[in-house]
Amino acid sequence: MKILVPVKRVVDYNIKVLVKSDGTGVETAGLKMSMNPFDEIAVEEAVRLREKGSATEVIAVSIGVQQAQDTLRTAMAMGADRSILVLSEESPEPLAVAKVLKAIVEKEKPDLVFLGKQAIDDDMNATGQMLAGLLGWGQGTFASKVEIVDGRAEVTREVDGGTETVSLSVPAIVTADLRLNEPRYASLPNIMKAKKKPLETIQATDLGVDMTRRLTTVSVAEPPTRKAGIKVGSVAELVEKLRNEAKVI
């Protein structure tokens, strides 16, 4: 069983981005970039399945600029066997990413594709679902548990107010939620070894995929800051306000 894991290079989760003062976007130049944390969870799950013997090969793929190869190296240091870099503009839209991934899937013929449920930069939460749609595959999104049972993927999903388990015929798409696992560190010896693992580079334009952006960013603003409300003088007044003004109790 072969698992494909798409990974995205994003601004490191420890860094707080700043909105550019001209409102055209967020300032990302010169910021530390890392693998999207949800994608780390996806890589970890794929590697664990291989370590358990359920999978035979884990292939990482990233779509973006040349530096995304650092992210692929991290994936390989965590245990992916090889990787593919699809060169394109920085951060294409999920629809374009799903189309590129569909082309890669047709080439590599994986049995499972594990993705992070969303990237922490654009917060779209769409690529896995869109890829599943384009391929006509089943989707186990927001996964907190994945098991291979009788050749099917049994995925426990985080849904509002609890969990839900679905059984998917393989091939299938799984998107990782926070509680699926705690990803391992890329250790220094493994980072050194990952330098020698194969990394194939292809041009997105060679895949014959329409990557035209459908969304244009008109402006980006900082969220409004919260303002101080009112001081209440007593518990009775607080209860009254919460009941009748805020209507939250």
Binding site: E182, Y185, L188
Partner: peptide
């Protein structure tokens, strides 16, 4: 030697323990 990773607050080896190099 680089530091061990994944040592817990109490000094035990956690689930993600990686020895230093």
């Amino acid at each position: 030697a680089t530091g061990d990773m994944g040592i817990t607050r109490d000094g035990e080896k956690g689930p993600n323990y990686q020895p230093g190099m």
